[in-house]
Write a protein that binds this DNA or RNA. Structure first.
Lengths: 334, 334
DNA sequence: ATTAGCACTCAGAATGATAGAGTGCCAGGG
DNA sequence: CCCTGGCACTCTATCATTCTGAGTGCTAAT
């Protein structure tokens, strides 16, 4: 159906179109690429490719541009990820190594990705569920209010105010803290639910209601919240006059955590790249290249970039993969 | 020089131009506003206003549009801040009241401001210097590493990893924590510097180096960092086809903390509005309306919105003032 | 299967004519 | 002295028209 040359033609069309932003015609193709056939032959091939839906013509007398389906084929079978140069790798490493907190790591990652790809970068915070509790702190804020602070082994600090059902004496708060730390220290939050069940017995009855409130915040609120935290940057790269009309949609999507999460896609194994093209993202003319990242081979969250459908996929994929790896490594160290 | 009517003409021009985005001519003016004079008279007035630099003509046969100087005069003398309606005030209050942490308050404030004004909202985190220490926590992360957690009376939790010069035993860390809490609890960070000086005496000599490291991070790093934290949102409102070319500049400015800080301007007394117009902001075609906010009459940080020079100043100023007040109030309660 | 040649299509630039919005200025009237 | 009606003038925006060139699809020949 699609012989070797037709694939080469498609590849050439994608590459040319990506670099020039202009529909590419048969003549230009034979000139710029080493195809040893005439323009007419290419035209026949292009007619076939168009019939199959890989390329399209904006209007009758124009060259061809790839369709979403064309990009799909290009990404899946016609291109290979472009590895980062040694210099780039060093730069990535140096840039991330300077981070002093999880917030900082995430912030730097966003900047890095945006700079490297010249596109919008999106980074999800590492999940708390998979990380272990290092310390839990309770601080009285008032008679029926405590501040719950959770410190994990990835260096993350999470906080939440808990409204207590009953008045709590300072001693009972202190006691609760001791119990919590004794039981949860070193455990993963994902296992904590099981641990906590047996915990209630150890709390004196009058304090159980309060303890329950703290537990539920700890498990639901804190752990959940983080999974939904997504940060983005590099929006200045949207100003390139692409998109045009869709720009508003993109900006709106970026501000909706939920949409952003969906864009990053389902979890996958670390460093495995996901590429969603055009309509697949729900945003017209937009593609998303994403990867899972995490320490020690465990996927903890996702990160990626969002750009116009006509982006340089090999380079972008190379950058995303490299950054995902280095972030995972940094996270593993801290 | 500028009689009553000329000022009215300027006001009318600003209002019309803001609502239509189109140069306004003498005819349209007399029609839409209750000016009891003829178009010719208005033309004469406009000629004067133009000569003085308050309005300008895009081209010969077009109407007039306000210049930066014109907007300035309008804001300073020709308009009054439009108060929020009761319904809007209730909405603001309800929206902010649901917040459960400082992060959340700030995030909600940004969304609120962006929605109310349909522009880009910018909010600076409340300064730590002015808030009092409620609790300090030190957690060992390794032999020469501790995690410093600072909890303030505004409910903010700040964290930083401190690299210690010497190896620290768990007991010495615990001791340091006790001393820190005893001395700083209830004190403001801005006074902490003085307090800390006398503190060194109470620390055994072998631990002094470590204590010093913790102090300096506490004072410099934590307190400073926060003052530079600025959050923005509502960028989707940039997609309105204004700006055109300057859009990239605006987006870039938004991603640069430093620039953003400068845009918010110098500190002022709470609820006092600052309006910077056009060139005054350093961003062509862009204006910034900002206000200081803080609990109990103390200015703690600034917030504002950024929009096209031709924005609805009275409404925007009303929204910014209202939000600044309510945020201050919420902050005062927690 | 490939190629050269040719007629055909169509977007975009260039041109020119037109309409209309808005101005500036002047002379007359309160 | 200020206001007003009238009028000539100046542009821009718009539309229709033309022209050009890039690019195609088809066909007949290799």
């Amino acid at each position: 159906m699609l012989d070797e040359r037709k694939l080469a033609v498609l590849r050439a069309i994608v590459e040319d179109y990506v670099s020039t932003t202009e529909p590419v015609g048969s003549k230009a193709l034979v000139d710029r690429h080493g195809l040893d056939v005439s323009a007419a032959t290419i035209r026949n091939d292009m007619a076939v490719l168009e019939e199959q839906g890989f390329i399209a013509q904006p209007h009758t007398s124009a060259g061809r541009i790839p369709t979403d389906k064309g990009y799909r084929l290009f990404v899946d079978r016609l291109s290979s990820i472009k590895p980062m140069s040694a210099a780039e790798r060093r730069a990535i490493e140096a840039f991330l190594a300077g981070a002093y907190s999880l917030d900082d790591i995430v912030a730097r990652t966003v900047r890095l990705l945006a700079q490297l790809t010249r596109q919008v970068a999106v980074v999800q915070y590492p999940s708390l569920r998979r990380s272990a509790v290092r310390h839990i702190e309770l601080v009285s804020l008032g008679p029926q209010r405590v501040l719950l602070v959770l410190i994990t082994d990835t260096g993350r600090v999470e906080q939440a105010v808990v409204e207590l059902p009953d008045v709590a004496e300072p001693e009972s708060v202190a006691h609760l803290r001791t119990v919590l730390n004794a039981c949860l220290d070193g455990h993963k939050l994902s296992d904590a639910a099981a641990t906590v069940v047996g915990l209630a017995d150890r709390i004196p009855v009058p304090e159980r209601a309060n303890a329950g409130a703290v537990f539920s915040v700890l498990l639901d609120s804190l752990a959940e919240r983080n999974e939904e935290r997504v940060v983005f940057g590099g929006t200045a790269n949207l100003a390139a006059p692409d998109w045009g009309k869709g720009l508003r949609d993109v900006l709106e999507a970026l501000e909706e955590q939920v949409v952003l999460m969906r864009l990053l896609g389902e979890a996958a194994s670390p460093s495995a790249l996901t590429v969603r093209i055009g309509a697949e993202t729900g945003l017209q003319g937009t593609s998303v290249v994403s990867a899972a990242y995490g320490a020690r081979g465990q996927a903890m969250a996702k990160l990626g970039v969002l750009g116009p459908t006509r982006m340089d996929y090999p380079s972008t994929m190379g950058a995303v993969r490299a950054v995902a790896r280095y972030v995972g490594r940094i996270l593993g160290e801290s």
